[in-house]
C-alpha cells in the first residue's frame, strides 16, 4: 500500500499535458507569435544607402507620425477606420440585435428560413460581394438608378463608390450587409439561453414587452454585447479585403476609403511603380497592432471584468 502510494507520488510531472499542449503551442508560436514579434522588430529597422537594414530605433514611427508624406496618410487611414468602425457599431450591431430579438420571438413563422437567408452573405467570398455590389451600384449597368426611380428618387442617384463623400459610407454599409449575420447569431444564441422563468416572472410582475426586452433580456446579454463590440473592433481595424476588391489598393477616390489595412498593403508591397517598403510597412502594421491591442485591453479591463458579476 505505502509503496504504491509513494510510487504514485513520485510521478508528479504530468508529461501528457505537455504533449497535448505542444501542437497548439508550437504552431501558435511559429505562425503567430514569432511573425508578430519579427514584424515589430522589422519596424525598428530601415534600409541605409547600401540597402542594408540597420537598426534605427523608433525613427520609423516618428517619420510616420510627423513626416509630411506619411502623416496625412496614417491620419487619414485612422480616421477612415474610425468611421468604418462607427458605422458598424451604429448600424450593424443594433440591426443584428433587432433581428435576433425578432427571431427569438415565438410568434414569427419561418424563423429558420430568415435566419439562414440573413446569415448567407457571411459565407460568401468578399471578392464576390465586392463585385456584386460594384455591379449593383455601377452608374452604367447597375440597378441603383432604376431602383430609386421606383420611388421617384432617380435624381438622387449618385456614383456612390466614386465620390469622396459617399464612397466610405457606401463601403461600410456593404460590409454591414455582408456581416450582419454574425452579431445576429451571437445575440440570438445569448437570447435563447435566457431561462424562461425570468421572463415569465417579469410578465407576472406586469412588465411590458419592451420592458422585458430592455430591462431583462438586454441586461442579461451584456457579455455578448461586449464580445460583439470587440469582435467588430478587431475585424474593422484589420479590414482590407472589401476595400481592396472594390477600390483597389489605391483606396480611391483620393484615399477617401483608405483604411489601415489598405495603407499597410500599399506601403509593404508597393503599388504599380511604387516599390514596397517592408520596414515602413512593418511600422504601419505595428501601429495597427497597438491600436487593436489598446482596444482589446480596454474591453478586457473596462468591460469584461464588470460583466463577470452579472452572469447567472
Amino acid at each position: 500500500m505505502t509503496s504504491a502510494n509513494s510510487a504514485r507520488r513520485r510521478k508528479p510531472f504530468p508529461v501528457h499535458i505537455l504533449v497535448f499542449l505542444a501542437p497548439a503551442f508550437i504552431i501558435y508560436t511559429l505562425f503567430m507569435i514569432y511573425p508578430l514579434l519579427d514584424s515589430l522588430r522589422l519596424s525598428l529597422y530601415a534600409p541605409d544607402v547600401n540597402r542594408q537594414e540597420v537598426f534605427v530605433g523608433l525613427d520609423n514611427y516618428e517619420r510616420l507620425m510627423t513626416n509630411d508624406l506619411w502623416q496625412p496618410r496614417i491620419e487619414g487611414a485612422i480616421k477612415n477606420n474610425l468611421v468604418f468602425f462607427a458605422i458598424h457599431m451604429l448600424v450593424q450591431n443594433p440591426i443584428g440585435l433587432m433581428l435576433a430579438a425578432l427571431l427569438s420571438s415565438q410568434f414569427i413563422r419561418g424563423r429558420a428560413i430568415y435566419r439562414t437567408l440573413i446569415f448567407t452573405p457571411t459565407v460568401l467570398s468578399v471578392v464576390l460581394v465586392g463585385f456584386i455590389w460594384r455591379m449593383i451600384l455601377s452608374p452604367l449597368w447597375g440597378i441603383s438608378t432604376d431602383f430609386l426611380d421606383l420611388f421617384g428618387l432617380a435624381a438622387y442617384d449618385k456614383p456612390w463608390l466614386g465620390l469622396e463623400e459617399t464612397a466610405l459610407p457606401t463601403l461600410s454599409l456593404i460590409s454591414v450587409w455582408q456581416w450582419v449575420g454574425i452579431p445576429m447569431m451571437l445575440f440570438l444564441a445569448a437570447l435563447i439561453s435566457i431561462p424562461d422563468e425570468l421572463i415569465e416572472a417579469a410578465r407576472v410582475d406586469g412588465a411590458t414587452a419592451w420592458g422585458v426586452f430592455w430591462r431583462i433580456r438586454f441586461r442579461l446579454i451584456m457579455p455578448t454585447v461586449g464580445i460583439v463590440g470587440v469582435l467588430t473592433f478587431v475585424g474593422n481595424f484589420n479590414a482590407f479585403d472589401l476595400i481592396y476588391t472594390t477600390q483597389k489598393a489605391t483606396a480611391g477616390p483620393n484615399y477617401s476609403t483608405d483604411i489601415l489595412g489598405t495603407f499597410f498593403y500599399r506601403t509593404f508591397f508597393g503599388v504599380q511603380l511604387q516599390p514596397g517598403n517592408p520596414t515602413m510597412g512593418a511600422t504601419v502594421a505595428g501601429v495597427m497592432f497597438l491600436i487593436i491591442l489598446a482596444g482589446v485591453l480596454l474591453y478586457m479591463f473596462g468591460w469584461q471584468r464588470r460583466m463577470l458579476q452579472v452572469e447567472f
Partner: peptide
C-alpha cells in the same frame, strides 16, 4: 514619370494617377 523619377517617395507615377483623376473629378 517612368525613367528615374519614380524611385522615391512619394512616387511620381502614383501621384500623377491621383491628381489626374482629381482633375477630371473637378476636385
Amino acid at each position: 514619370s517612368y525613367q528615374i523619377l519614380s524611385r522615391g517617395e512619394p512616387n511620381n507615377e502614383t501621384q500623377l494617377w491621383e491628381v489626374s483623376a482629381q482633375v477630371l473629378n473637378g476636385e
